[in-house]
């Protein structure tokens, strides 16, 4: 059992477990959507005094912030206690494509060259991370949800708007991967 858990989980098991999370939250009378936490955090910081969009009862959203807190803890547990030291099995084609962008595959979940403490000393890397985050935050609020809210919760409930949003997610992702990343890396 523990050996199975320590390996990377197969896609069918992972997908099933994500639905399990959605169902647990529904059972608690909540809905699965992570990005609304970003709005809640802005509101907690007092943004509601200046901007009406952030003027809502953020205290009703504390449950979701607790979920967020748990997710950080979950990442810590998975990496430190439920992992084996084998490198991620990334496809050879991706490794080669990234090499062309001067990004080496280091076998981890994320490239240390972008996400380590060391990487933060580089102004270009810092701007890439900040602008990338800004696009995610702006886009998820503009479209009213992220991967969990639209792709999982929304499509499960056969929502056409969520399908349009997911088409947008991929459109943006393809533009970034094929057209913009070759220019900035």
């Amino acid at each position: 059992m523990i050996d199975f858990l320590k390996q990377p989980w197969p896609w069918y098991f992972s997908g099933t477990m994500i639905v399990f999370i959605m169902l647990i939250l529904l059972f608690f009378g909540k809905s699965f959507g992570f990005s609304s936490n970003l709005r809640t955090m802005c509101s907690m910081a007092g943004a509601g005094k200046k901007v009406k969009f952030f003027d809502f009862r953020w205290k009703d959203q504390i449950w979701n912030l607790m979920f967020l807190l748990g997710s950080i803890l979950g990442g810590f547990i998975a990496t430190n206690y439920l992992s084996n030291p084998e490198p991620l099995k990334l496809s050879a084609a991706t490794v080669a494509d990234l090499k062309n962008l001067d990004i080496d595959f280091d076998g981890g979940l994320n490239p240390g060259s972008l996400f380590s403490l060391e990487a933060m000393k580089d102004l270009k890397t810092l701007s890439i991370l900040l602008i990338g985050g800004l696009l995610v935050g702006f886009g998820s609020r503009y479209s009213g949800g992220c991967t969990s809210g639209h792709a999982i919760s929304g499509l499960s409930n056969l929502q056409l708007p969520s399908l349009i949003a997911v088409v947008g997610f991929f459109l943006g992702g393809l533009i970034m991967a094929f057209l913009i990343m070759p220019l900035i890396f």
């Binding site: 990338g132 985050g133 702006f138 886009g139 349009i164 947008g168 533009i175």
Partner: peptide, 9 residues
């Protein structure tokens, strides 16, 4: 909104 999100994703 979705496209902007995808760029960042």
């Amino acid at each position: 909104g979705g496209t902007i999100f995808g760029l960042g994703w």
